[in-house]
Amino acid sequence: MRAVARVLLLLCAGCTAVELPAQGVLRREVDRVLNTYWRGREGYAISAKEERRINRGDGNPGLYGELAPEGARRLAEEWGLCEGGKAVATFADLGSGVGKLVVQSYLEWPGVHRALGVELSATRAKRALEAWEALLLSDEAFELRQMALNLAGDNDATPNPAEEVKLLHGDLLDADLSDVTHAYVSSLCFPESLIFDVSLKLKQAPRLRAVASLQPLNLDSGARLLALPTSWTSRRGMGTIAHFYDLG
């Protein structure tokens, strides 16, 4: 059953169903599609050859992990991207793995107009595209995005998911960040040299307003700290500390 139909059943069934807050229904639907379309397309297992290629030099940047859906929601709340109003932000996940955060940001955060993911692993980038294309074919991406916009009071916008979400295979240092306003970097295992290069790359992004990183970056702004639930932290734990930078 498609997402909109499921929501209408939940919200309009009267005494035969428990009525849920609309935002809660949207989040449950987003969780469902992430679990459904990414099943069997997880990012943890890649070939030893590919992992060695990614991990050249110091550090272990190929080690995989991802924000939990609740971690993504804390990120959105911190940046005000889950609030009402017109969608004006372009979000980028630099080191996007199988693309779940990119897709969640577009489906669930009404403040995001476009979402971009850049992933160095060819295997993970391929799985991200496969899952996203399957979701596009089901029409659920359109329906959930429309629901998010309607809940935020933006009833005039018509989503175009195929154009507004991009999942790319490539080096994040080569990515075009000219339109990006908000960026997340899953940098926990990045070596010091890569942290330096990523910091320089972000400083050159002309529209960038906010950055979150799992390691401190060399940006012209002090960082505030916030714990984000991740795939490697306990559900009962605080999460992993992220460094938040406001760049104006």
Rank of each mutant, 00 (worst) to 15 (best):
L177C: 03
V118K: 03
A141C: 07
G80V: 09
R114L: 01
K86C: 06
Y64R: 03
R56T: 12
V102I: 01
S231H: 04
R145Y: 03
L26E: 06
N155F: 11
E77V: 14
A205E: 02
S231I: 02
A152H: 04
A131Y: 04
L188F: 12
A17L: 11
Q146E: 09
D154A: 05
D246N: 15
L177V: 02
W132S: 11
T90C: 14
G43F: 12
C15K: 09
V7S: 07
G84P: 00
V112P: 11
M238F: 05
R28A: 15
L26Q: 07
G99V: 01
D220R: 03
L9A: 11
A148G: 06
R127D: 12
M238A: 13
L34V: 05
R41A: 12
A45M: 10
A48E: 14
D171K: 00
P206K: 05
L200G: 07
L34T: 01
P206V: 07
G57T: 05
D156T: 02
L188N: 03
E140Y: 04
V33H: 06
D179C: 05
L149N: 02
M238L: 12
L151F: 05
D197R: 15
P159V: 00
V103D: 09
V4Y: 08
L129V: 14
G222L: 08
P69G: 03
A227W: 00
D179K: 14
R207S: 02
